[in-house]
Amino acid sequence: MYPELKHDIVQTNGISLHVVKAGPNNGPVVILLHGFPEFWYGWRYQIPYLALAGYQVWVPDQRGYNLSDKPVGVNAYNLDELAADVLGLIEASGRDKVSLVGHDWGAAVAWWVVNKYPHRFEHLVILNVPHHVVMHRHMRRSFSQMLRSWYIFFFQVPHLPETAVRLAQWFLLERVLRRSSRKGTFTTADLELYRQAWSQPGAITAMISWYRALFQSAVQRPESFRITVPTLLIWGGLDKFLGREMAGPSIDLCDDGHLVLLPEASHWVQHEENERVNKLIDDFMRYNP
């Protein structure tokens, strides 16, 4: 049995986001935030499981991606703007609080918005991304992490990254997904859907602008970097982009933090270990009031 997927357009923070919804209208709301270079489809294994478990699931294409608006300019993609998008989704849901799940860039947004606005969240679930303080520290002090993150620096070059992606006809992005994941994780049919999302007008520049905003756009620091919302951090041990040594220090910044390491999974943990990840998310939100 597969629940009905409703495709909706939600107004938030001055833009329109394409949001896929599933599950009962009276269920607790959980928002799933994808990362680079995915779109809502990156949660295809989690949406039906959580919807059938009784949650009302909201899965946006984040700004700049797929069918959502793609505002022009690097400043439109800083963490404060991305966090404001999430707050607008919560308002649109009609709930005072929701649970939030994020992977990759979606996890970075999730850490940030929960850090700054904890009163709007019941639970936080993070997949394979460290707390922003830990990431900043390792990017400055760890040579191995700097090497892993070489693409972040490449994306700072104006125009060149998106030109390279277009000239290669999406081969570069496909290769990144396939070479950094377990064999068979991304099928030919999956990648065709990804290509359609990447081909949306303005999408590639907008997606890369998230990285450019890290260095080029200022944000307002939170009063404290402690995470007070109950937090589950799931980490695939074979992540080629982010070292597992950042997981423990991230949990240390959480008042109620739980770490689960899946040693045989890659960065794409919710794809490769979807059954385990689904149960971990459901159990955590169900039994941590």
Rank of each mutant, 00 (worst) to 15 (best):
L17K: 03
G202Q: 04
D255F: 11
V260D: 11
P28T: 05
S16T: 10
D61R: 09
M1N: 11
Y151T: 00
F153W: 11
I31F: 02
K6Y: 14
R179N: 10
Y151S: 04
S224R: 09
R182H: 10
Q46P: 00
L17W: 13
Q145N: 03
N128D: 12
D61E: 06
V134I: 13
A203E: 01
Y211P: 12
R212Y: 01
P60I: 03
V20P: 15
W43D: 07
L242G: 05
P48F: 03
R226A: 10
L32K: 15
S199D: 14
F153H: 05
Q196T: 15
L214T: 14
P24L: 07
V277Q: 10
S93W: 05
A247Y: 02
V72G: 08
F155T: 02
D190G: 00
D96E: 09
S144A: 14
H271M: 06
G106W: 04
L253N: 07
R195Y: 04
I227R: 00
G202I: 04
R244E: 12
T163D: 11
G54N: 02
L172T: 08
L238T: 12
L172A: 03
G73T: 15
S149T: 11
V133A: 04
I31K: 00
H131C: 06
F225V: 13
L52R: 08
N115D: 09
H34K: 14
A22P: 05
P289G: 02
H119D: 13
G23H: 04
H119T: 15
E264G: 13
I281E: 12
I126E: 01
N128P: 06
V165P: 00
L17V: 09
M135Q: 15
F143S: 15
Q56E: 00
V72N: 01
Q46C: 05
S217I: 08
Y287E: 06
A92Y: 10
Y55K: 01
V277H: 06
P289Q: 07
S209V: 14
E275C: 12
Q62R: 04
A76C: 02
I234G: 08
S250G: 07
L50V: 11
L160V: 15
L89G: 07
L262Y: 07
E192A: 14
S209Q: 05
N75D: 07
L191T: 09
W111A: 14
P24C: 03
A206Q: 08
L280H: 09
T163M: 15
H123E: 15
P158D: 04
R226D: 02
G23F: 13
Y2L: 14
N13L: 03
H267M: 13
W43K: 10
S93G: 11
R120V: 06
G73E: 04
V101N: 00
F154N: 09
V219S: 10
P201G: 09
M135Y: 07
D239S: 02
V277A: 07
F121P: 14
Q216A: 10
A107C: 09
F153Y: 15
L214R: 01
S224W: 02
